[in-house]
Structure formats: structure tokens, C-alpha cells
């Protein structure tokens, strides 16, 4: 299985940490005249069961960092252990499996599959995991009631409000009981009241289920609700990490 992929139990594989980033650099247009370094050597840890927020102004590299954490993208340099797995060594299929098993994405724009019911959307990660149809259905209904969307199970995304879509998306993120939920501006497209509702769900999941959550936001108010804030500015984390490398910039 993917779990024993390049894993070093002695040092980095500390079960206490879900995420261990060390000196992560991300560059675009490598080797070209317009080479662009967005992340300048980020180190940060997230402990199991933590609710952490990454805040920073637009363009500071929040989404870029999230893509690295969510193994949608590989860093240019640096090491990254996700739930004890050295991500660098994983091939493309293994990365898919890691995303499938370890990570639950919640996007600003919901990204529900259109023309596909809420229920089927929630089932999707389990489908890719090879869960049987009956178990998929059971778990999906369970998750939908967790986000209070069970009565909309058969509805299409087109028939749901923004807040409702985001709740379905959160249920979907939870499908395979991931090690971490990564939410990139989950309330960005919602009004304050609906945003509040979504935040409440995150708090509930964190408290009741002990889910590890990394929330990316540019709203300091929302960030304050979380246990720890990691401020990101111009590709550097300037405060809040507990890694000794994190000297302020």
C-alpha cells in the first residue's frame, strides 16, 4: 500500500504530525528568464487534530502552498512528510492514492461535479477508493446528515445554494476519513451568514470528530477562530510555526 512508501520511522515519521514541511521552495518557469520563486523555503508542522489557519494577502502564495500540501503539485525543493509518507518519492498513481486517502479538499468554488447528485458527489472519493456500492451509499448518507444535507441527497448541484453546495463539498472531503481537510477560502464565495454556517461545520467536525483542518483564508477574523495562525507574506511564514527554522522575516 501507499502507506509504506519511503517512510522513515526514526525521524520524520512521527505519528504526532500530519504535515511536516521543511524548506519548501516553489518556483515557476524554472530555467527561463521569467523564473518566479513564490515560496521561499517554508517550514511548518501541523499536529494531528489541530485546526490551523494560513492567512495572508492575495498573491502571497497561499493557494500555491495548499497545492503542495495537497500533493496536487510537487515543491521545487524541500521535504514534505504527509502522515509519515515522504511525498517526494511517490509516483503519479501513488500521489492520486494519497490525495484519495489522506486529503479532503474543500474549494472556494465548491467544484461539485455538475449533473451529478449530491449523494453521488459524496460517493466519488469512495468510488475511486474501490469501496462497494452499498458501503459508499451508507457512508455518503451518514456524511450528508452530518452536514445537515441528507434531505438534499438526490438534488443536483445546480439546484443547491452556495452554502448548501459547500456543505456537500465538505461531506465529500470527509468521505475517505482523510488525515487532513484542506480548505482554500471555503467561505470566500459566500455571504457572512452562510460563511458562518460553514465555519460552524468545520468547528463541529474538529471538535466532534477530531479532524485535522488547515484553513486558508485572507480573513483575520476567521483565522482567529482557529487554534493556530500561520501568517504568510510574500512566500514566507512569518510567525506562529513551532519549527526552529521559522525565524521571522
Amino acid at each position: 500500500m501507499i502507506m509504506d512508501n519511503g517512510l522513515n520511522p526514526a525521524s520524520e515519521n512521527n505519528k504526532e504530525y500530519v504535515i511536516r514541511l521543511k524548506d519548501i521552495v516553489k518556483k515557476f518557469y524554472i530555467g527561463r528568464p521569467n523564473e518566479l520563486e513564490i515560496l521561499h523555503g517554508i517550514s511548518m508542522d501541523v499536529k494531528r487534530g489541530e485546526f490551523v489557519s494560513i492567512v495572508g494577502p492575495s498573491g502571497s502564495g497561499k493557494s500555491t502552498l495548499m497545492n503542495v500540501i495537497g500533493v496536487l503539485d510537487k515543491p521545487t525543493s524541500g521535504t514534505y512528510y504527509l502522515d509519515g509518507i515522504n511525498v517526494e518519492e511517490a509516483d503519479e498513481d501513488e500521489l492520486s492514492d494519497i490525495r484519495n486517502q489522506k486529503i479532503g479538499f474543500v474549494f472556494q468554488t465548491y467544484n461539485l461535479i455538475s449533473k451529478t447528485t449530491a449523494l453521488s458527489n459524496v460517493e466519488l472519493p469512495m468510488l475511486y477508493a474501490g469501496v462497494s456500492a452499498r458501503k459508499r451509499r451508507e457512508r455518503a448518507m451518514e456524511l450528508l446528515s452530518l452536514v445537515e444535507m441528507e434531505d438534499r441527497a438526490k438534488h443536483l448541484p445546480e439546484e443547491l445554494s452556495g452554502g448548501q453546495k459547500q456543505r456537500v463539498a465538505i461531506a465529500r472531503a470527509m468521505a475517505n476519513s482523510p488525515a487532513i481537510i484542506l480548505a482554500d477560502e471555503p467561505t470566500g464565495a459566500l455571504d457572512t451568514k452562510t460563511g458562518r454556517l460553514v465555519m460552524d461545520i468545520f468547528h463541529k467536525l474538529h471538535k466532534e470528530q477530531g479532524i485535522t483542518i488547515v484553513l486558508i483564508t485572507h480573513s483575520p477574523e476567521l483565522a482567529k477562530e482557529t487554534e493556530r495562525i500561520l501568517p504568510l507574506r510574500d512566500g514566507n511564514i512569518i510567525y506562529g510555526g513551532d519549527s526552529p527554522d521559522l525565524s521571522a522575516v
Partner: peptide, 16 residues
């Protein structure tokens, strides 16, 4: 395209 991106984020392998 977005749907494909989403599916990949949810763990779809290229072969899927």
C-alpha cells in the same frame, strides 16, 4: 477541464 481537475484532486488516477 475543471471536472477533471476536481476528480484528480479527489484521487482519480490517470487511468480512471
Amino acid at each position: 477541464t475543471r471536472e477533471i481537475g476536481t476528480r484528480k484532486a479527489l484521487g482519480a488516477r490517470n487511468s480512471s
